[in-house]
Amino acid sequence: MSLHDDAVLVLKGYENHYEGQEELRQIYLAHLDAHPDGMWKACEDGHITASALVIDPERERVLLTLHKKLRMWLQMGGHCEPDDTALAGAALREATEESGIAGLALLPGGPVRLDRHLTPCAWHLDVQYAALAPADAVEAISDESLDLRWFPYDRVAGVADESVVRLLEATRARL
């Protein structure tokens, strides 16, 4: 199965009753239907991306990265790569690479949210997961980051934009 096919299956099975999520799901599916290359950065009309909010529920905190290009505190994530075979795998790969944490595990139940946003390269149709950090997690800053920091749940709204706040709320609701 191709990554494109996996993304279609994930999106067809995605159910979320938060406002706007069904509309986004339909936009993502229409995009993939119209763009066989819709998974890749080269697709100038936009592309599917995969991200994961790294969360430590025991300590009630999340790990955010200060993105080097966007200069914003965000969850880990980014473009799919040719070796990716599943959307969930791409999200886990991105979270592991950008956090430096070994042993992350995606929260069961598939994607937590969808978020569509314009970036310097194109529209990102982001499929957002949550990744549980192991108890002994030690983070390490990647080349894509200016900083990497744990934030208590109640401080996220003060540093990150609404999309990250909504992702945290949805993740906490799923926990």
Score class of each variant (00 low, 15 high):
D5A: 15
H17C: 00
S51A: 06
A157E: 06
L63G: 14
Q21N: 04
G38M: 06
E15P: 00
Q128H: 02
L106E: 06
Y129F: 15
S145A: 15
A34I: 01
V62R: 03
E15S: 11
D161C: 06
L66K: 13
D37T: 09
H117W: 07
E23A: 15
P36C: 06
S2E: 07
D154P: 02
A137D: 12
L148A: 04
L125R: 12
L175R: 10
H17W: 02
T65I: 12
D37Y: 07
D136S: 09
P111L: 11
R113E: 02
A133K: 14
R172Q: 14
L11F: 06
T65F: 11
L146V: 09
K69S: 08
G109D: 05
T49H: 01
L92I: 12
P82W: 00
Q128I: 07
A50P: 01
W150Q: 10
A91L: 10
L146W: 12
E98L: 05
A105L: 14
M72P: 00
A86K: 14
E22Q: 13
E97D: 15
V159T: 04
A140Q: 14
Q21F: 04
R116Q: 03
S142E: 14
L66A: 05
G78Y: 07
L168A: 04
E162Y: 00
M72T: 03
L92M: 10
A7T: 10
A133L: 15
V62Q: 06
L114C: 07
D45I: 11
A91N: 10
E169R: 13
A135H: 12
L106T: 06
A86V: 06
D84A: 05
L11H: 05
D143L: 11
E22I: 05
L92G: 09
V112A: 04
G158Q: 11
L114G: 13
A122N: 14
R61P: 00
P57F: 10
S142I: 08
Y18R: 10
H4C: 02
G89M: 08
D5T: 15
D147Y: 01
